[in-house]
Simulated scan of single mutants.
Amino acid sequence: MSTFDANDSNDPSSGSSIPFVTLGSLIPAAPAGFKSGFIAIIGRPNVGKSTLMNRLVGQKIAITSPVAQTTRNRLQGILTLPTAQIIFVDTPGIHKPQHELGVVLVRNAQNAIGSVDLVLFVVDGSVPAGGGDRYIANLLNQASVPVVLGINKIDQQPTETSELDQSYQQLAAVHGWTVAKFSALTGDGLEELQTCLIDRLEAGPYYYPPDLITDQPERFIIGELIREQILALTREEVPHSVAVIIDRVEEDPEITRILATIYVERDSQKGILIGKQGSMMRTIGTNARQQIQKLLMGKVYLELFVKVQPKWRQSRLQLSELGYRVEE
């Protein structure tokens, strides 16, 4: 095992922040006409599901990356408006699994379909509908849950979009789905999407306090922020083989001390993560610490360990120990 600290600066990161949880919050009674419900965000890898949820709830709670299969856990983001509360369920991208981890991720995404009030099926509007989209469409067709087809990345569409739009319009028409077009990156069309989703929810209560934006504990978010930097900074062979466990969080009025272990499958991956004279690990740690300080709104000391655990993605037991299990 190797260890590095990521604290080459004592200055907390600047920028506005919103607490993820306000302790002691109460769940109020919903006013007349109030709507609420759970909406699963479903789609292929890399269509912008996590970016969309972050935009909708107004703060970063899901990590994003160009690397496919970035999202590994079902993550709930909560949007509370004067007339509605929407609980968005961000899911792993549905893909053909190559290992036991992939099997767990896809099963969790599929399980989410049957446990929500509405599905937002997100597709990449910069390319025509493909086999992966049609596969997911068939899965959704087997579930008794309403669906809105969300065409994302309209900012990346060429001026002439008739062919692209037609491929998705045809897909929606076959299943009788409503279509919404938007850009999660720029925010264009998101107000219309929000209205479209609320219109399809039933009257209901507050499920969470109005100031809560995620149900995940801070430890989970901290681990994801560390993994996000690994995705951003390391070579292709490393990101899919990485898991992060938060071993200890110690808080006092002046600083929060965090110890975390990064698991990889091979010694070569460990070497890439560490880098020459520890340079890569210092960069990962420094960047992650800056993001964690925004989350916690205070100074953070971050120490990272690296450990090799061979073939952990193929072992159901090791997956469970690292926090990856089938969610019912």
Score class of each variant (00 low, 15 high):
272 I>M: 02
288 A>M: 04
202 E>S: 14
216 Q>N: 06
270 K>H: 12
293 Q>V: 01
265 E>N: 03
225 L>D: 11
210 P>M: 10
206 Y>V: 07
240 H>A: 03
225 L>I: 07
240 H>Q: 08
246 I>K: 10
255 I>Y: 06
263 Y>T: 12
254 E>I: 08
192 E>S: 13
293 Q>R: 00
264 V>H: 06
254 E>N: 11
293 Q>W: 01
230 I>A: 06
233 L>E: 03
201 L>N: 01
207 Y>F: 10
220 F>W: 03
218 E>K: 11
272 I>L: 05
257 R>M: 05
272 I>C: 01
288 A>T: 03
205 P>C: 00
230 I>R: 04
271 G>E: 12
259 L>N: 11
214 T>L: 09
207 Y>M: 04
195 T>N: 13
239 P>M: 02
206 Y>N: 08
284 I>L: 09
229 Q>V: 11
295 L>H: 02
202 E>P: 07
201 L>D: 00
199 D>G: 12
289 R>A: 05
199 D>H: 10
204 G>K: 00
196 C>W: 04
203 A>F: 14
253 P>L: 06
271 G>V: 06
268 S>P: 00
217 P>M: 04
241 S>T: 11
292 I>H: 04
267 D>G: 09
230 I>F: 02
210 P>I: 10
244 V>H: 14
274 I>F: 12
255 I>M: 10
257 R>W: 03
277 Q>F: 04
282 R>N: 14
293 Q>M: 09
237 E>H: 09
222 I>V: 15
288 A>I: 03
223 G>I: 04
223 G>S: 13
271 G>H: 09
202 E>D: 13
231 L>F: 15
264 V>R: 02
256 T>I: 11
255 I>F: 05
252 D>N: 14
219 R>Y: 01
196 C>M: 15
194 Q>K: 15
282 R>H: 14
269 Q>I: 01
264 V>Q: 08
266 R>C: 07
284 I>S: 05
252 D>A: 02
270 K>D: 10
256 T>M: 02
247 D>C: 12
257 R>Y: 04
263 Y>I: 14
279 S>E: 12
213 I>L: 15
242 V>H: 00
193 L>R: 00
263 Y>C: 12
271 G>Y: 09
241 S>K: 13
286 T>A: 13
221 I>E: 01
269 Q>P: 01
222 I>Y: 06
289 R>W: 06
199 D>A: 13
260 A>D: 02
284 I>F: 12
241 S>N: 09
247 D>T: 08
266 R>P: 05
296 L>R: 03
226 I>C: 13
261 T>D: 01
209 P>G: 05
212 L>F: 11
204 G>R: 00
225 L>Q: 10
254 E>Q: 12
224 E>Y: 05
292 I>M: 02
212 L>P: 01
217 P>A: 04
237 E>I: 05
